[in-house]
Design a protein around this nucleic acid. Structure first.
Lengths: 212, 212, 212, 212
DNA sequence: AATGAATGAGGGTTCATTCAT
DNA sequence: TATGAATGAACCCTCATTCAT
């Protein structure tokens, strides 16, 4: 992704490319893949349609790059995290907070994953880079669980993947389905207090789930 | 939905309408709202484009009816459930199983909700009927929690909505994000055994969450 | 056109037919032939599309009937006129006033004629009745001119058709092109005073045109 | 309309645009606004549907441009006229001939104005340019009338607008309503001799109208 | 590197009309 | 007499994409 071009024009090109990608993320996350218009993207990027084909070849390729970028950013953010393992419970709580925060601050991540799932991960499978990206998903969680077990606080029979999925579920669903939930439950789940209460709740639930 | 028509012709009309609605559910759940083609729907319904406008006025109105139908069916299924409250834990376990089962057997429910959330519940807000449908979402859960508390098995400080959301999250996310999760985790979460293990796991987690 | 049916149902049928015709006149005169929608007509007639085909066979046939009716009404109104020939000038003035008044009170007459001219009188030529209707157009004018000549007030070399066309032109154009004229000239020709002044003016002009 | 483009490609583009406009004038004047088909226009222009939207945004905008062009051309032709004011009567006769000629040679002008009046000048009102165009309509007539009055040949109480409208009426109506008039009067008004006689007649009438 | 011009396929929708009762 | 159901063609318009500079 990072280009090693040094000339001024090459830098301009990189900037144009980056603007398009950023616009594409926004548009696809707002309107989905089918609903995302090339023209809307190019307008938002203050470029023109033709440039999109110049840099990305096709709408599909652009979306794949969006996907890759989206995953990459999440991985990057995850990799940056450092958890104090002295107290595994605290670490786990922090991990939950991190995931929750990331989803909240990156609604495009949630939305684009939804879109990709609508298409049964069709685009993900077409990406060479994506398979390389994955696999480290459990990287942060594993040491925490192990620490907790070593400290005698967490149960021995903990399934890592299940725990990971539980955390994801509890963070993702609330934000992903916010709009229909509000309509359905007649409650304003988007209010800051409601969100804070939910975070406290799921942190507690996750802890209970692993506790002895 | 309920029609008072008696003539043969009127009945055929109802059937045509129903075929279109059914086809629309399928197409919208497969391709989303923007991606869902009128022509594909009419072909699948063995009707023609014009009839869709005859019965539903527009693509958007059709989608709204699809939404209403989708919610309605879920409500109906929920309302049918009867839980033995003698053992609240068992009842809760059964409730989780029901939700899980429903989502699993009705992928269109999950998909259409995702699509609707992509559009920030825009269509739901345009529906007069939808607001009437909601509100009973917690109807099944509440008595179970109360029973468990009466039996001294569940904690007193249980938030009903939170518990409801937890159950939904754990059932929904797994199925909704199956494809990207498989790609990301490198595991086949769609295998029957994997699904069964997940159900057992979340039943356990929900119980831990409410237990004293 | 007038039907001699006597039964109650037959009368109802006549009424439906008449309502459709009336609605068609209004719609065609507002929207033209191409722009005139069958559905709009049937709605305005408080009937339904099917009835239009029942009574009129096709949109084109309906328009032809509208044309026939429109001409017929004008002929009828013309035939009703009686002019005192004692003073030919007064009679001519009254004739101009009649034509002006009729056009003004029957904008649909003007509009439908315009529409028919757009189509190069295609529909008129398809009508068997229309040719029968015409021919008496000059019936009112001729005796007046003759009287004026006999009275020594009008010139001998008056072309009847030309005079008729002049009267028509001066009445028709003002009303037919009212909207663009207002926009173009920046004057409100639709104001009652403006209309009255125009009538006085053209009456004077027509008189000057035939006077010795 | 005037373009400052210099490149070969840009010039070709201008030509395409011009071809579309020309085709649109023809089609709208033949079939009216509702009846005028985009496809027919693009075919006639040897272009394709898409280009119409590329250059004109919508059918309505295209029609507005057609209107503007039509008015503009007439204004241009009017502005080019130079009348010898030495003999006001001759000048007036020439003015009538000019108007008559223009309408005759530009049936699309007549037809498009009719169409626009059918729509109550709806499109004219949407045009920013059109209001600017108007206002000089009486520019040619005024000096002639003044000259005639100075020469003691024309009356003093002449209403400029009325005279203008009279000339327009007499030229316009004959041509605009040619087809129904032929059908109605049973005369061939489109024959060259008939047209020539009409021109002589209306020149005479206009003169009589202003003469002392 | 960047961009106007051009395109064909297909999008949702509406049309006049006919079928069947 | 009257009317809902059904239809195919066509309408305006938009889409992602390519051409040519």
């Amino acid at each position: 992704m990072a280009t090693r071009n040094t000339g001024v024009r090459a830098q301009q090109a990189d900037e144009t490319r980056a603007r398009i990608l950023k616009a594409a993320i926004r548009v696809f996350s707002q309107d989905g893949y089918s609903g995302g218009r090339i023209e809307k993207i190019s307008r938002l990027a203050k470029s023109n349609d033709r440039m999109i084909y110049y840099y990305f070849k096709s709408k599909e390729q652009l979306f794949i790059q969006v996907l890759e970028h989206t995953y990459e950013q999440f991985n990057l953010a995850e990799a940056k995290q450092r958890f104090e393992l002295d107290c595994a419970s605290t670490a786990l709580t922090q991990l939950v907070a991190f995931v929750w925060d990331y989803y909240f601050k990156h609604p495009e991540f949630v939305s684009i994953l939804n879109t990709e799932n609508l298409h049964k991960a069709r685009h993900s499978r077409k990406s060479a880079n994506l398979s390389a990206l994955s696999g480290q998903a459990l990287g942060n969680l594993a040491p925490i669980i192990r620490a907790g077990q070593a400290q005698g606080r967490f149960r021995e029979d903990i399934d890592l993947t299940h725990t990971y999925l539980m955390i994801s579920s509890l963070c993702y669903f609330y934000l992903s389905n916010l709009h229909t939930l509000c309509a359905f439950l007649g409650q304003d789940l988007s209010a800051p207090q409601a969100r804070e209460r939910w975070l406290l709740y799921i942190q507690d639930q996750v802890l209970r789930g692993v506790a002895k």
